[in-house]
Amino acid sequence: MVRRVLTLVVALVLLVGLAVGSLYLPMPYIVATPGVTVNTVGEFENGPVIRIEGARTYEHDGALSMVTIQYAGGPQRRLNTLEVLTGWLSPNNAVMPEELLFPADRSPEEVSERQTVQMNDSQTNATAAALNQLGIGYEAVPIVADTVEDMPAEGLVEPGDVIVEIDGEPVPTDTGEGDGDQAVGSAAVVDAVSAREPGDVVEMTVDRDGETVEVEITTAEGEDGTAAVGILIADETDFPIDVEISVGDIGGPSAGMMFALGIMDRLSEDGLTGGTRVAGSGTISADGQVGGISGIPQKMVSARRDGAEYFLVAADSCSQVADSAAYGELEVVRVETLDDAVDALETIRTGEGDLPRCES
């Protein structure tokens, strides 16, 4: 009888030990939490976030804040079961598979480098979009970044080639020319190619290390059904002003829209916000398209904590809004373009008109 009791006690202790121990097993998950908020028209780490040279700038009250997410966990420091459960129980946090941020085929260093590149690209796009919105011209030269494997352009053009002409017509590169609706740079090249039927031949003139090279490319059918040649193009931009954006080691593309608005605010005699604190998140393209991003629920919490009254969100991210612990405590405004964001800020500033909501 005594032996049986001892056996049961030992078994119970072992089970309890295993249960407790399992709470500290490493798990392949990360926890996203609300991060820092940075006012793009304010200061960060003892200096202005946006510094502009070559044009008169202005300072205004209010805020146009970018918001961030902090991540706990990852391949270099895996969370245990208890930490994952704690994150899952918090209304402010989100638990997600580690591979969403750290794909198996990329090292943590490669992920960090990619986020840095995305941040730099977002700043360039933000400058281009802001200048476009303000009607300030700049030069955008289309350069081949790479070709797509097994597509027609492979082997015919090379990375670094400058696309000069399409079918004998010069590729426009000056955004200040025309009525402002003309595509320039890479956009002009894409438009010229996609306007054809798959199977048509496109003649391109490229500048390759100072030498003029003529190539003929038979188009194929792209993923969207239009003609395509398989060239990845990047614009080399030459802006009439120097814009420097400093946000420390923050990476990723999601602050693009707020950078563009911050640049516009700095260059505008009349401020965009009228003294209101506005936050937001969304990528930006050079032509002013605002793209969706993840982490909106956590970013809304960050915005609320920072005192924001309004939150600008890309239309593609609207489905995330209702999942935030800050839902109902912020005026959430849906935008698809930089022009939409500017119009929304005018409505906020003047109090006239209606704001587009994610629910509408």
Score class of each variant (00 low, 15 high):
A126Q: 05
S268C: 09
V321P: 09
V49P: 02
G225H: 07
A128V: 05
N93K: 11
E149P: 00
A32N: 13
V9D: 03
D354I: 11
G271T: 09
E197I: 11
E83D: 11
T219N: 00
G185R: 06
S246I: 01
M27T: 13
G288K: 06
I163S: 02
I136V: 15
A220M: 06
L25G: 03
P172F: 01
R56C: 03
E177M: 13
D235G: 08
G222A: 04
G248Y: 10
A128F: 11
G168N: 04
E113S: 13
P91T: 05
D179K: 11
D105N: 15
L18S: 12
D200N: 07
S186Y: 11
T147A: 10
M66C: 11
T350G: 11
L8V: 13
V31F: 03
C318S: 07
E359L: 09
S246K: 14
A130I: 07
S302F: 00
I250Y: 02
S90R: 08
G137L: 03
V144L: 09
A72K: 15
V13Y: 09
V332D: 02
Q320N: 06
P240R: 10
I143Y: 11
I348W: 01
C318Q: 03
V213H: 04
E197A: 14
E83I: 09
G21M: 13
R208F: 00
R304T: 06
A227E: 06
G252I: 05
T219C: 00
S65L: 00
E331I: 13
V229E: 06
G328E: 07
G222P: 04
D174L: 06
R56K: 15
L156M: 12
E158G: 06
E59Y: 10
S319G: 14
T350V: 09
E336M: 12
P91C: 04
E214F: 09
V301Y: 00
V141Y: 02
V215D: 02
G47E: 09
G275C: 02
R196F: 11
A72E: 14
G353L: 03
L156K: 14
D354H: 13
F311C: 02
G62H: 04
M151P: 07
L15F: 14
V171G: 07
T347E: 05
A140G: 03
V9W: 12
T337N: 00
D238I: 08
D270A: 14
Y24A: 10
E216V: 03
V84M: 01
V164H: 08
T337K: 01
K299Q: 12
D340C: 04
A128R: 08
R266V: 03
V41P: 01
P108V: 10
T116L: 15
G21V: 11
A325Q: 08
S22N: 12
A314I: 03
H60I: 02
K299G: 05
G47M: 00
V111Q: 03
I143E: 14
V171H: 07
G180C: 10
N92K: 14
S285D: 09
S122K: 02
